[in-house]
């Protein structure tokens, strides 16, 4: 009979429609604004509508999510900040849209490069969030952020981030990417152990352009 296919289709639409209400009952009205319910609603067992009430509700961001890079500094015991970045320039070289600009300075006495950048710029209008800088950084210094709400009132000067705006403490890194932080800490500890074995606590040398 003509129309059976349409009726079967409509039955599926009604099923989807009712499922949302059944799910509402299951959560006793706590289907929304409830992190626990959100997990289920967004998971493989989800039923009914799957929309998220942004910004009151937010999707959980997985650890590997990547957005605009940031620079990590260590907070030393005496309260000073120490940039992990040595301005070796690998991130600037690997960056596909070439949006990283680094100013390196030389020590006026020895004439050798100072292993901390004077300035570090990322043009976030150009950054394509590919994560290659963080992947190939040999000093665990540049990592991808989770903060994706970048709206601003000026789309020119404000969107070129400088070192002050890019720098974030290692504790922030540990809070957004705990697993990666643990891996990095292990790598840093290993490097320090190697250095100690070689004798002497030399400041890491700046890698010279190949």
């Amino acid at each position: 009979m003509y129309g059976i296919g349409i009726l079967r289709g409509l039955a599926i639409t009604i099923k989807h429609f009712i499922e949302t209400y059944l799910d509402d009952l299951r959560w006793l009205g706590r289907r929304y604004y409830n992190p626990e319910a959100l997990q289920v609603r967004q998971g493989p067992k989800a039923r009914g509508v799957f929309t998220v009430q942004y910004p009151e509700e937010r999707l959980t961001i997985p650890e590997e999510f990547r957005f605009i890079p940031f620079l990590i500094y260590d907070e030393l015991e005496d309260g000073t900040k120490h940039d992990r970045c040595t301005s070796c320039g690998i991130c600037a070289k690997v960056c596909p849209p070439q949006c990283i600009w680094i100013v390196r300075s030389d020590d006026p006495v020895t004439g050798r490069p100072i292993p901390e950048p004077v300035e570090f710029y990322i043009d976030v209008d150009i950054c394509m969030n590919c994560g290659l800088c963080s992947e190939y950084c040999p000093f665990e210094a540049i990592r991808m952020d989770h903060d994706f709400e970048l709206a601003s009132y000026d789309r020119f000067a404000e969107n070129i981030y400088n070192k002050a705006k890019l720098s974030k403490p290692a504790s922030y890194y540990a809070s957004v990417r705990p697993l990666n932080y643990a891996i990095d800490e292990a790598a840093i500890a290993e490097k320090q152990a190697k250095k100690a074995a070689r004798g002497g606590l030399k400041v890491p040398e700046v890698q010279v352009d190949q």
């Binding site: 301005s87 320039g89 600037a92 070289k93 690997v94 960056c95 596909p96 070439q98 990283i100 600009w101 680094i102 100013v103 390196r104 490069p113 300035e119 570090f120 710029y121 043009d123 020119f156 070129i160």
Partner: peptide
């Protein structure tokens, strides 16, 4: 046009940022 191939020479170590 900036340069024939990437990486561009002026990004590092002098970094005079421009748009």
């Amino acid at each position: 046009y900036e340069e024939e191939v990437k990486p561009f020479k002026n990004r590092w170590p002098d970094g005079g940022v421009y748009r």
